[in-house]
Design a protein around this nucleic acid. Structure first.
Lengths: 230, 230
DNA sequence: CGGCGGCTTGATCGGTCTCAAGTACGGTGG
DNA sequence: CCACCGTACTTGAGACCGATCAAGCCGCCG
C-alpha cells in the first residue's frame, strides 16, 4: 500500500493563460433556469485546469473531451473522484477554494464562467440558488455511489464502471473510453493490472468485446448487471 | 465478497409513531442564521429512524445518543456512510425521498423538524438557503474523505477512524465509541475480525490503549497520524 | 450458575498487488 | 513506405493482506 499512481507522466501545462476573456460564447444551461455565456478555453492532454487549494473563481462546463477530478494522498496514491464528459459542469465550490484538482484527460475544450456572476444571480433568483444546491446534491449522490463501488470486488467495480460510462455516453452499447487504464484504476481503487485482467475476463466470459483497448462493446448487459450487486 | 453484514440482529422498531407532535421544544441552530423549534423523539437501540426511499418530510438533529446512516447492497453487504453524534444534523435531502436509511445506534433522542418549514424559510431568506447548501456541501466533503479512506490499508483506515471520532468528541484523547465493531467494520469497508485485530495491533504498538472494548485512549497521536497517509 | 451477544484470537484460503516480461499501437524521422 | 521508438496495455508468477471459517473469551443479565 505504498505505491505511486503516476499522476500523469508529462508535467501538465494549461494551454491558455488562466483568467479567460470571452471570445466565442457558449451557453451553460443550469438545467433550464439559468442560461449563461461562457468563454471557451482549450486544454492539452493532461493539462491542469485547476489545483486543490487554488481559489475557485471559475466554474466549468465540458464542451468536448473529458476531465478527471482527483485528490492525491501524501504518499502519492491518487484517487479519481469523478470523470466529467461533454455537457457536465464541474469545479463548483461552496467555499472559496477548490477542494480537488482537475485535469484534462485528452485535448479538451471547456466553457468557463465566473463564479461571482453565478453567485450574484443566485442571490437574486431563488430558482438559480436551488439549481446550485441541486448540483451539489447530485455530486453528493455520485460520491456516495462511488463509495459503494469501493467496497466491491474487482469484477463488480469494473462492471459497474462500464455500465456507468455506457449510461453517460450517447451510443450506449459501444463505449469509447476517453481515459487510460491508470485513470480507470485510480477511479476504482484498483491497479492497472487488475483492471486489464478483469476486462479480459469479462471478454472471455462474453460479457463484453474489446475491438480496441479503449473501445468496449457491451455484449451482455444482464451479465454485467448481475456482477454489479445493487 | 458475498458476505452478509448483519444489518442489526433485532428487527428495528421506531419507539414513537412517525409524524411527531411538538412537545418539549429543542432548538436547531443552522449555524446561526436559523433558529428553530424541534420536537424531541426517542428511538430505541437499533430503531429505524427512516428507510431508503421513504418520503423525506423531516430533518433531524441528534440530541443524545448516536445515529448510523447506511445503504444496503442487494447481496446483503451494508455500507455505513456516516455516523451522527450529538449536535449533528442529518436526514436532509434535496429530493423528496431519503437516499439512505438511518438507525439509532444506542438509545437516542433526536429533535425533529418539518422539512417544508425549513424550505419555506429558505425561500424567503437567502442566508438560510445558503446554510442549507453549505450543509449539503459539508456532506459532500465528508463523503469524499470517506472515499479516500476506502482505498487505504486496514491500519490506515482504523487509525483515521479513531482520529476522526476523537476530533468529534468533547474529551478528545479518550474516545467512548457508541457503535459496535460491526458498525465500524461496515463504515471502514472491513470485517469485524480485521477491525478487532487492527485495534489490538495498535494497542501492542502503544499507539492506543483499550481499557474497555468501546473505550479507546489515544496514546500516541503522531503514530496514528503517520499511519494515516494524507 | 448458565446462557447469550459482542469481542478476540487462530489457521487457512483467496483475491488483489507487486514485480517482471512481453505485446500492440501511434507517431516520427529517414 | 518502412524502421524505430515510446507509451499504453496485456500477461505471467509469486507474495501478501484481509476475508473466511472456527474456537474461545469476556461481560452482562436472567
Amino acid at each position: 500500500m505504498l505505491k505511486i499512481a503516476s499522476p500523469g507522466a508529462v508535467e501538465p501545462r494549461r494551454s491558455d493563460s488562466r483568467p479567460p476573456r470571452p471570445r466565442r460564447p457558449g451557453s451553460l444551461a443550469l438545467t433550464g433556469s439559468l442560461e449563461m455565456i461562457g468563454a471557451p478555453m482549450t486544454f492539452a492532454r493532461n493539462g491542469e485546469i485547476y489545483g486543490e487549494g487554488e481559489p475557485a473563481d471559475y466554474i466549468y462546463k465540458v464542451a468536448s473531451g473529458a476531465v478527471r477530478m482527483y485528490k492525491v494522498l501524501d504518499d502519492g496514491r491518487r484517487q479519481i473522484t469523478a470523470f466529467y464528459l461533454p455537457g457536465d459542469i464541474f469545479g463548483f465550490e461552496v467555499g472559496d477554494e477548490h477542494t480537488s484538482s482537475a485535469e484534462a484527460i485528452g485535448n479538451t475544450i471547456v466553457l468557463v464562467f465566473r463564479r461571482s456572476t453565478v453567485l450574484a444571480l443566485a442571490n437574486r433568483d431563488g430558482d438559480v440558488a436551488h439549481e446550485l444546491w441541486a448540483m451539489t446534491a447530485r455530486e453528493l449522490h455520485r460520491a456516495r455511489s462511488h463509495m459503494l463501488l469501493l467496497i466491491k470486488s474487482a469484477q463488480e467495480r469494473v462492471a459497474a464502471f462500464l455500465l456507468e460510462m455506457a449510461g453517460r455516453m450517447p451510443a450506449s452499447d459501444e463505449v469509447e473510453l476517453p481515459m487510460s487504464r491508470q485513470d480507470i484504476a485510480d477511479y476504482l481503487g484498483l491497479t492497472i493490472e487488475t483492471v486489464s485482467r478483469t476486462l479480459t475476463q469479462l471478454e472471455n466470459s462474453a460479457a463484453i468485446a474489446l475491438p480496441a483497448s479503449r473501445r468496449v462493446v457491451l455484449r451482455n448487459r444482464a451479465a454485467l448487471q448481475r456482477l454489479n450487486a445493487s
